[in-house]
Write a protein that binds this DNA or RNA. Sequence first.
DNA 1: ACCTGAACACCGTTCAAGT
DNA 2: ACCTGAACACCGTTCAAGT
Lengths: 231, 231
Amino acid sequence: LELNSIYVKMSSVTTGRQRGERRTDALSKDRIVEAAIDILDVEGERAQLFRALTTRLSTGVGAIYHHVANKSELLAAAADVIISRVSDELVDSHPRDAIRSLSLGIFDAIDAHAWVGAQLTRDPSQPGVLRIWSAVGVQLDALGVPESARSDAGSALVNYILGAAAQYAAGPGRQLDPAERAAILEQIADRWQQADSAASAESVTSLREHDDRQQFLAGVDIFLAGIASLR
Amino acid sequence: LELNSIYVKMSSVTTGRQRGERRTDALSKDRIVEAAIDILDVEGERAQLFRALTTRLSTGVGAIYHHVANKSELLAAAADVIISRVSDELVDSHPRDAIRSLSLGIFDAIDAHAWVGAQLTRDPSQPGVLRIWSAVGVQLDALGVPESARSDAGSALVNYILGAAAQYAAGPGRQLDPAERAAILEQIADRWQQADSAASAESVTSLREHDDRQQFLAGVDIFLAGIASLR
DNA sequence: ACCTGAACACCGTTCAAGT
DNA sequence: ACCTGAACACCGTTCAAGT
């Protein structure tokens, strides 16, 4: 115990920490993941993640690699933490509402942590994606979707959620200023109008001024309606 | 004209081309994009794209940058070529069938060009994605989806297609050997079973042995059924 | 205007050497 | 067992110098 505290003091000198300011918690995968989340939230996905972690945790890169295999494992673990916060918060309610809450929870989480959208899209077998499958599966079961249709319904919903997540996360609203965003939406609207000679001004306008979150939820409801027809 | 052919000869010596083997076509964005598609198809997304292009087209990197702004523009242009081949081939048919064909066409294109899945997911305002929006818009209009619901329906379908595309493209079937794939599907199945005490062996089995393409189409049909309920 | 290719920049990853 | 940090590797991008 005394030897240990001497080691701590020596180590704090080495790392430039003040005497007595000893680290309360040792380096661990959890601490690294938490730090990574903070860094990604603030600096975005193109942060120099490992260099930033090194500074933030005042260690060398090697120490991080001692707890984490590589960047992609770290990102996957970080995304899973974000998703688990959503799925753990689900309260009991009608399965239709639970699916809406889950979907909106994921949407909002990605809104708050933009990097999660791209991350979930990168690898279908990462823990965060499995967690979504799992949560969706529970609710579809509770909804009484027949066995035979369960996996079709599940994959439809999960793919929609992930697709929307990725699109909105990287979306124009995020990386472009309002003027550019408007121009792009107009471009899309123009194509629709061009393709659809009967398109009224209202449709174009609604496309231009659509509310991402509400539109996302409308998509969930379309899938729920489609799933209901499977019964 | 003679000066020109002398220049060609000199240049072919410089680039190591055989005498008389003069390039039939000059370097252009189109040629670069075509070459990029071939390289990405064969070597995958982690190909050393610019170095490979340099060899393939026997030029320097700078020449490529003279026609293309950067890698992401090049990837976006390449993905758009793939998507345009699909959307241009659509034959007139009932809008429901046209939506199925379009969706399957995109699915198959991504199956043949795996890198397209990830690419379409990266930026919602890239040309290939706009092209999908446009094609979907035409069909939803033909389907008689009311104005007010058009953009909700469109974004639901586009997001589903892109989400599924990305998942299947990067999917376990592609990057893992069959044994690992089976293990992962089993893991998902276990979670479903764990969550669903009533889950029968059949449901788990169908999840394990599901056919990606068929499941993708089932999702499109769920969406179509949901859309029908909007009327 | 179009092309050449060496040099640079950026960042994740390794590794020999510590405590 | 855990940590340190300089060196390396990888690849997109720039740029001064050509034709």
